[in-house]
Design a protein around this nucleic acid. Structure first.
Length: 831
RNA sequence: GGGAGAGUGGCGGAAUCAGGUAGACGCAACGGCCUUAGAAGCCGUCGGAGCAAUCCGUCCGGGUUCGAGUCCCGGCUCUCCCA
């Protein structure tokens, strides 16, 4: 007996080669067609793909293939986020230079992608570690420098001792490095930064336009930007000329201010504290910095120290003590706050702890009395009516805020102001495997080391390769940038005076690379510009972007910022990079835990594809649940999918001959249950696939295959209906399991490309059943079912329903008060 | 503490957008057929209790409604993000 099992190992490579040979997925080759740009977050090319990658790329591929069937000219590119720490860290271990390891990894990764049958336009492949790519990072850096968006600053940075680099705030999670979980330390060093805060308002406002982004991602960005409206008010330090600006959102409570808190590391502290006190304060600062590192909950534990100085409230002239405390940080707002314990919970707790006075000035709007400092268990933090506040008394909070800000402005001690939680983006990294920053230092022209930009004509500033360095020696440094050890790199000539000069040895954060790569795909070989304007205006913004939600406030914020800059540079019209964002959940191990070597529950895509084929792997991932939900790998479920395709295959092989017999096909006509099922399935998939409900798409295809299988055993096969069902099945399956679908299509005798065939349409008339099943309820409880002709009117339906056996029994001779008929669904008798 | 989301069979999930037969589809389990035997395949059962009629059942408690997994109010639990 001939083996009729379906053989993915044969048909999948066959179709992959076919697509490759015909360049079937090249973008820009369907003249006049509307365009769709479908993109997945590009991978860091580690040696082997993991299941998370399989999930993103499968999701993106379904969307891209569907768009193609809908007649779009689809751009679906792939590339590699190739700079970064893992390759560098691996090199320190085994001495293999990143520039050698990375291309190998890319090759292996590409192989895995190809075996999954993802429909990429491979002619546009890019990798960020190539000089042809990163020279444009440098070019952008110079443009930003010209516009004051890039600047040099001295800053307290988050330093990861294990990765030996600086981290952005977003890369520090609960005091730990996002990559290696080491405890992050504070250091003060000069670094390059991007003024993303200048775009804070726009980044916030434009969130409203992102109506096809998941709400939670938008909410996370909104929180991250953290806009607050309020006022800045200067408090004079008593007996000095020093002014401490404070930021508050509750200016209406300023008459209740009983002390000031300033960050212990705030530079103004040195201007008013006595030498003696200063030593105490420094020790305090040191201690809390230490605690913050060792204890994640340190911040909830309030600690403070009186500085010995007093400040004058500009509204009241009253003197209040100035404290330092662990919950005020120097780089948020102005680094100092006024404390109103009666109306701020944190201030309240602090005041109780250190026995500071509590002065209520806001009366609840419902008329209940002012808070009693002695007995109140908590601060009253709502708006209300202002009391005991001089000329502002009896104003509503909002009105008081406005009036007070106005007075402050007129009197010159304050202004309405807005602060953001968002910080500027520090981009300097003391690492090797990244984009060299195109800056030169010349002692003669630039004694202050502000940095001299490398001229565009000298770009790219190339990263020294394996021949120019001793890998282990250069990379295993102690905090100095590795590039500083490569004298052939460091020593150069000054672009201004032509004298000796040194290059900047830091490299750019790799989030720079991923901030604009989506645009580079538009003209990946362009050597005169990062990309072509005309291409950008034709394809941007990206229509659908698929990736993990872990990038909500990192990559997804940076690339929005970058897009706005690109637009200002005249590179594109778009001011937002992506219209629709799809975030996908995690693929966990079979035990429900995160896949990890530690748990020994890692499932390798390569093994699975080898064993079951790409189509089975793809279908399983799609079937397991909605894209945004986390899912669990299940070997049994994979088997189930494999059985499903085999069942279809076997049945198809047994009827194939008849399906291609034109005489028999011509003889058959009419509507029958299979045709109805076929058209209903088309309708369902058309709806579900648009809503990204791929799991129910797979279910519906299983149902259709069950209906196809049932025909055979019951009655003489209506071959025309069977052929119609198989054609529809192949088309509907095509975006999900493209190889299997293409093979079916070919064996149905079709010579055209199923990949480019139009998405099937259903005939609504063919979806209508002759008999409709109605559920019959009595008083809302199910009591029976009846079959009613589809053409019956309400009265006929009721009459039939009434006669159903169990229904009649329940109705008895009680009068029916009301009968509700829901067309096509149910009848409910109320007695 | 603030924000977002989720709780449905032994399991993954469907129905939730628009209130209308809860459990589609698949997995696991069980029974049967085929087979020397296994693998594969095929047929059947499959929320709980009950011989049945019937009753109970979508985290818990209320409410709206002829009818609530779905809507409203209150609570519990869990996940993620931010403090």
């Amino acid at each position: 007996m001939e083996d009729i099992r379906y053989q993915p190992a044969e048909i999948e490579p066959k179709w992959q080669k076919h697509w490759d040979d015909r360049h079937l997925f090249r973008a820009g080759e369907r003249a006049g067609a509307p365009r769709a740009y479908v993109l997945e977050m590009f991978p860091y090319p580690s040696g082997a793909m993991h299941m998370g990658h399989v999930r993103v790329y499968t999701l993106g591929d379904v969307i891209a293939r569907l768009a193609r069937m809908r007649g779009f000219d689809v751009l679906h590119p792939m590339g590699y986020d190739a700079f970064g720490l893992p390759a560098e860290n691996a090199a320190i271990k085994d001495g293999l230079h990143p520039a050698i390891r990375t291309p190998r990894n890319i090759e292996s990764f590409r192989e895995d992608l190809k075996r999954l049958g993802i429909s990429y336009d491979w002619s546009r492949e890019i990798s960020t570690h190539e000089p042809e790519y990163y020279r444009w990072n440098q070019w952008f850096f110079l443009r930003m420098l010209e516009r004051g968006i890039a600047y040099r600053r001295l800053s307290r940075v988050n330093w990861c001792p294990s990765c030996r680099t600086v981290l952005a705030n977003e890369q520090v999670l609960e005091g730990l490095c996002w990559r290696c979980d080491s405890k992050v330390e504070d250091r003060r060093i000069p670094e390059w930064a991007f003024r993303i805060t200048a775009y804070a308002d726009e980044l916030l406002q434009d969130l409203d336009k992102l109506d096809k982004w998941p709400e939670r991602i938008v909410a996370m960005q909104r929180n991250w930007i953290g806009r607050s409206e309020g006022a800045t008010v200067a408090f004079k330090v008593d007996g000095t000329a020093v002014e401490i600006p404070i930021f508050t959102t509750r200016l209406d409570t300023i008459f209740g201010c009983t002390y000031l808190v300033i960050a212990p590391e705030h530079k103004l502290v040195r201007e008013f504290a006595s030498a003696e006190k200063l030593a105490e304060i420094d020790a305090f600062a040191e201690r809390i910095a230490q605690e913050r590192k060792t204890d994640r909950a340190a911040d909830t534990n309030k600690q403070g120290l009186f500085t010995g100085a007093f400040a004058v409230n500009p509204f009241t002239g009253q003197k209040v003590p100035i404290w330092v405390a662990n919950f005020v940080v120097a780089d948020y707002g102005t680094g100092a706050v006024m404390s109103v314990p009666a109306h701020d919970q944190r201030d309240f707790e602090f005041a109780k702890q250190y026995r500071l006075p509590i002065r209520p000035v806001i009366q609840p709007a419902d008329g209940s009395p002012l808070l009693d400092p002695a007995t109140a268990p908590a601060a009253f933090t709502d708006d209300g009516v202002v009391r005991d506040s001089g000329p502002f008394s009896s104003l509503e909070s909002a009105a008081a805020r406005q009036a007070m800000a106005e007075l402050a402005r007129k009197s010159g001690f304050g202004n309405p102001s807005i602060t953001f939680r968002l910080r500027d983006w520090g981009v300097s990294r003391q690492r090797y495997w990244g984009t060299p920053i195109p800056i030169v230092y010349c002692e003669k022209c630039d004694p202050e080391r502000r940095g001299i930009p490398v001229p565009d004509s000298d770009l790219p500033v190339r990263l020294p390769g394996p021949d120019e360095m001793d890998v282990k020696e250069v990379l295993s440094g102690t905090g100095e940038p590795p590039l500083a050890k490569i004298s052939s790199f460091v020593n150069t000539t000054c672009p201004r005076c032509g004298g000796p000069a040194q290059r900047e040895c830091e490299t750019l954060d790799t989030f720079v690379d991923s901030s604009w790569y989506f645009a580079r795909y538009l003209s990946p070989q362009d050597d005169r510009a990062p990309f072509e304007r005309s291409e950008a205006d034709g394809w941007l913004p990206v229509d659908t972007y698929v990736g993990g939600p872990e990038h909500a406030v990192l990559h997804l914020m940076y690339f929005r910022f970058w897009t706005k800059v690109m637009q200002e540079l005249g590179l594109c019209e778009a001011r937002e990079p992506v219209k629709r964002l799809v975030t996908q959940g995690i693929v966990n191990g079979p035990d429900g835990r995160k896949m990890s070597k530690r748990f020994g529950n890692v499932v390798s895509p390569r093994d699975i594809v080898e064993q079951y084929g790409a189509d089975v792997t793809r279908l399983f991932i799609l079937f397991a649940g909605p894209p945004q939900d986390d899912m669990k790998w299940s070997d049994d479920q994979v088997e189930g999918i494999s059985r499903f395709l085999n069942r279809v295959w076997r049945h198809f092989q047994s009827v194939k001959k008849d399906l291609n017999d034109e005489e028999r096909l011509a003889a058959e006509t009419g509507v029958n249950p299979l045709r109805r099922k076929t058209h209903k399935t088309i309708r369902k998939l058309t709806h579900d696939i648009d809503n990204l409900q791929f799991n129910t798409c797979v279910s519906a295809l299983m149902e259709l295959s069950n209906a196809i299988g049932a025909v055979d055993s019951t009655q003489p096969a209506p071959f025309s209906a069977l052929r119609e069902a198989y054609e529809a099945f192949a088309l509907l399956l095509s975006p999900l399991a493209p190889h299997f679908a293409a093979e079916l299509w070919e064996q149905l005798g079709r010579a055209d490309e199923i990949q480019l065939h139009s998405w099937p349409a259903w005939d609504e008339a063919l979806t209508v059943d002759e008999l409709v099943t109605y559920a019959v309820q009595v008083n809302g409880k199910l009591r029976g079912e009846v079959q009613v002709p589809a053409t019956a009117d309400d009265e006929e339906i009721k009459a039939t329903a009434r006669q159903a056996e169990r229904v009649a029994a329940h109705l008895g001779d009680k009068p029916v008060r009301k009968a509700i008929v829901i067309k096509g669904r149910l009848v409910n008798f109320v007695v």
